[in-house]
Design a protein around this nucleic acid. Sequence first.
DNA 1: ACCTGAACACCGTTCAAGT
DNA 2: ACCTGAACACCGTTCAAGT
Lengths: 227, 227
Amino acid sequence: MVGSVWLTSGKGRKSRDSGLDRDKIVATAVRLLDAQGDVSMRALATELNVTPMSMYWYVANKDDLLELALDTVAGEIELPEADDDWQAGLRALAQAWRRTMVGHPWAIRCYGDYLNIGPNSMRFTQHAQAIIARSPLSKADQASALSAVFQYVYGFATNESRWLEYGRKTGRTVDEFVDDVAASVAEVPWVSVRSGVVEQKHSQSMAELRDRDFDRALDWLLAGMLA
Amino acid sequence: MVGSVWLTSGKGRKSRDSGLDRDKIVATAVRLLDAQGDVSMRALATELNVTPMSMYWYVANKDDLLELALDTVAGEIELPEADDDWQAGLRALAQAWRRTMVGHPWAIRCYGDYLNIGPNSMRFTQHAQAIIARSPLSKADQASALSAVFQYVYGFATNESRWLEYGRKTGRTVDEFVDDVAASVAEVPWVSVRSGVVEQKHSQSMAELRDRDFDRALDWLLAGMLA
DNA sequence: ACCTGAACACCGTTCAAGT
DNA sequence: ACCTGAACACCGTTCAAGT
């Protein structure tokens, strides 16, 4: 919670004598998380052909493990080339973040649980700050602007991930799943107005809708900043 | 997950013979969630002086219980008076949502887990749609605009709730907690640039910063929509 | 119609012990 | 230095049984 792996020296760089080390454990955890949406310490251990308790030699507890896993996926985010157009840069960065988060729905779920000060997360943050520094905004506005953009992106990606997870769990495509929901929801007595998502669905695929909306809102935000 | 309490007729309107009914169970769950940040079925039952298993007569499972609890807090959101100024209306609605979510951090945590089609949630949704309908935006843009605003608000409130929870758990004020984090984080080798939040902290309280940033970003978004 | 007891299949984690 | 076994204190939930 308040403690962070990154604030303790820890048993990070232990070498092995049975093929095990912290990196391997974290990598395996990420693999299982990607596959199942969650991990237990016990499942992780059996995957590694070892007793559950051996995990605790490399990692203080499950929270630490997840914090490490989270920074691992933060390392996958492609940072766009430096460019003079800060708005384009910010859009590209937001897109990159969204892309990798949607690829790891479990990550976005635990995003708020940790301080996110691992090396990869910090690399990302610094990149974002470098981009916004090229804008004409005041120092104070720059911070607000970054928060605004990434709070929006976080909200968007969270929502997007959920639909993808729903789809995966029910073994249907997202579009099919949305149809199912729409049909069920229509039966509920107090639902007289359909939600925006469901309403527009039939004209285009959810994926197209999402892409368009994502860029659109970013443009609004960026345009508003200069107004 | 994909199933929803609201899609099953369920044991909702059972009467009691030992003072128990679904409403009372849900109300108690909300009380415990507010107090501790989570509930177990077992703790809820003992709070109600009853065996864990009796819960399952009123509620199919824990997910259903939480879905009901979530709609209960959705009922606390104060819907602003109808007004011709749609931007003011949207801002007021966003503020109201933020206020009640920050009061129930557990709620925002499970917000994405359910379909949110309970009566109170739908009342909220319809109110939002009524407000945006008064804007000059096209039908399609109206849906995008609502999504954008509430995705941002969701991201903001999630972030805000986390800081408040951290503070509460460590028994410090949010400002003190931010100071603690800043001090610890400064020790981490790869942290060469401070994050926006931490950097500005000393000039004003976090609460002031948050209020200003929240309104600010909403203004940007709304301004961008008309550009 | 409502509630219980015993049980199942899980969790994360501590602690003392092995090599 | 690394790993294990047994145990503790939890979970949500099923199922058959009581009243």
